[in-house]
Design a binder for these strands. Structure first.
Lengths: 319, 319
DNA sequence: TCAGCAAGCTAGACCGGTTTAGCAGGTCCG
DNA sequence: CGGACCTGCTAAACCGGTCTAGCTTGCTGA
């Protein structure tokens, strides 16, 4: 029976057709639950998000990523199990339970951290995974990588080309790999351009954090003429801080963001930012994860690099 | 066995303890899959989102709602299955498949629409559901309701108290129930205040739509002195349009939003808006849904009403 | 003393697939 | 012409729980 339905060899073509016809005639649907039990598969993949809810809401990444992943998952009859956990300890529990209960056959590892303990954890409980970005620790999991460096580098190069020499950075938390990567890319590009590295303040990707960092930068004796933010949310808050102080953007201060959120193009001035294709990322990550689960050897995948989107929040520095 | 483990009567207390101890000693974990098969339960609930990804990303509602729901679900060992569908037809399929596969025991019905066909669909395939908001059609499902009217009413009343007389509205699509509700609340409050209803433009909750509507409003011979937007995203875009035209906010134009997004308080000027407790909404909705699934009669639940948050984007009209 | 009964326990059917073992029928070869 | 072998199909074990039927045991009352 199942040979016929699942299209495996050892069944005469005519019999297979007859069975399929009968199944259709009876309106028969295979029981997903029985299949899951007998084949010890969940036919689902998991995504654990451990960010504070207000940051999840402000970041367009997850919805787009999820939509992209879903686009692939529905076709393969796989479900997406979502988990939101408040803190780090709960996070480990979350993965363990997902695996122990057999709720999922694999997970997406997002928001990669420096020396991320989850990689060892998942290897230990042998839960297949795909990492979003290349981890800095040994990993047997395939990575789906978007080069964020070149996007930030393009932003910095763009500012340098405009004539800026004091280019600061408002970074994300240093323990996040993308926070660290963006910061390193900013610094490296400045050095390569023969400029002294500007000031770097570490914030937390939140609007409040971005505003605070911006105030601190502007309070310096010799404030930067341009600020590269690690995300649009902080950049937007920074823009407001500048306005509040009567500093013209981009006349007196250039700013760039990262994410290209829906609102970025509709701010005043429209935000120069860096765009990544989260939807496409989700699609590729889902395909890679499903292939891995199916036992196909998963190789790392390189996605198109992040693109600089030049709008009106950047201009030559005031003379 | 299962009597003991699930704490049902007909088992001596001592035996129960012995069994539990043995289970612990062996490191035994009940197989979720086997349980699902034999009890024909999925131990999961579903959420189908049928919005374009870019709007999902800009709206803080879903992440907060999901986080709230998760807070309840983890305690009850229930999973959340997420589905993102591109269009209306796919939507129906999505629910049907979720039910046919027995992937979930119930669903959250969000983004309620006027004359929403999903209610009849879910009743037909007898998939338990909880509606977020009170549907305008007959429904046997419990509704978890947040009064959005009074939040909008408070915003309009606030503007009226400041002295505004031409208060326009940029609405969400009319087929969404919350779009329609917010619009009706705006209109009703104006009429109650003895003012002629201002202009209402229907947009689509997107930044581009908000900007377009704002331009159209400001292009009128006698433009409004205040605009009530149906969400923060459109209000933010509207703010940018005003700035672009050199219209001072709030000096010459007052604006209000809806959602209280993370960025709202960090715009220039900080946005007067209406806040709903999406996290709490998620918690209550999850509890209600699980109770319904457990066969407990589900009554409608009234949540605390949306609150007006007055910031600096509203002021008396220019004389 | 022993039938009558309830509480407590145990064996086994069941959920609905997947997968293996075994069986019928036909072909090939000696 | 008969046994080896292959093909295609069928019957039954298995996944790991839930849940019912029936069996033990200990106690009550005539």
């Amino acid at each position: 029976m199942s040979f016929a339905l699942n299209g495996r060899p050892g069944v005469a073509e005519e019999t297979r057709a007859r069975i399929l016809a009968a199944a259709r005639a009876l309106g028969w649907t295979p029981s997903h639950r029985a299949r899951a039990l007998s084949s010890s598969r969940a036919f689902a993949v998991g995504l654990v998000m451990s960010r504070p809810p207000e940051l999840l809401g402000a970041d367009p990444f997850f919805p787009s990523f999820i939509a992209g992943a879903e686009a692939v998952l529905v076709d393969r009859q796989e479900a997406l199990v979502l988990q939101v956990v408040p803190g780090r300890e709960a996070e480990e529990d979350s993965y363990r339970r997902l695996a122990a209960d057999g709720r999922v056959d694999g997970v997406f590892l997002t928001d990669l951290r420096v020396d991320d303990p989850r990689i060892a954890l998942l290897e230990q409980i042998s839960l297949p995974a795909v990492t979003l970005g290349r981890p800095d620790v040994d990993s047997t999991f395939p990575a789906v990588v978007v080069d964020e460096r070149s996007g930030i580098a393009a932003a910095v190069a763009h500012l340098v080309a405009l004539g800026h020499e004091r280019i600061a950075h408002v970074a994300g938390p240093a323990h996040f790999l993308h926070g660290a990567t963006r910061r390193a890319a900013w610094e490296r590009t400045l050095v390569d351009a023969g400029l002294p590295p500007g000031r770097c303040l570490v914030a937390d990707f939140s609007a409040a954090g971005g505003a605070r960092a911006t105030r601190e930068l502007l309070d310096t004796g010799e404030p930067p003429t341009a600020i590269v933010y690690a995300n649009d949310l902080m950049a937007t808050a920074g823009l407001a801080v500048a306005m509040e102080r009567g500093i013209d953007v981009p006349g007196q201060l250039s700013i760039t963001g990262f994410d290209d959120t829906e609102i970025a193009a509709h701010l005043r001035p429209p935000l120069t930012t860096v765009r990544t294709d989260a939807f496409g990322w989700g699609k590729v990550a889902a395909r890679t994860l499903l292939d891995l689960i199916d036992g196909k050897p998963g190789a790392d995948v390189e996605m198109p690099p992040a693109q600089l989107v030049v709008r009106a929040s950047t201009a030559p520095p005031a003379p």
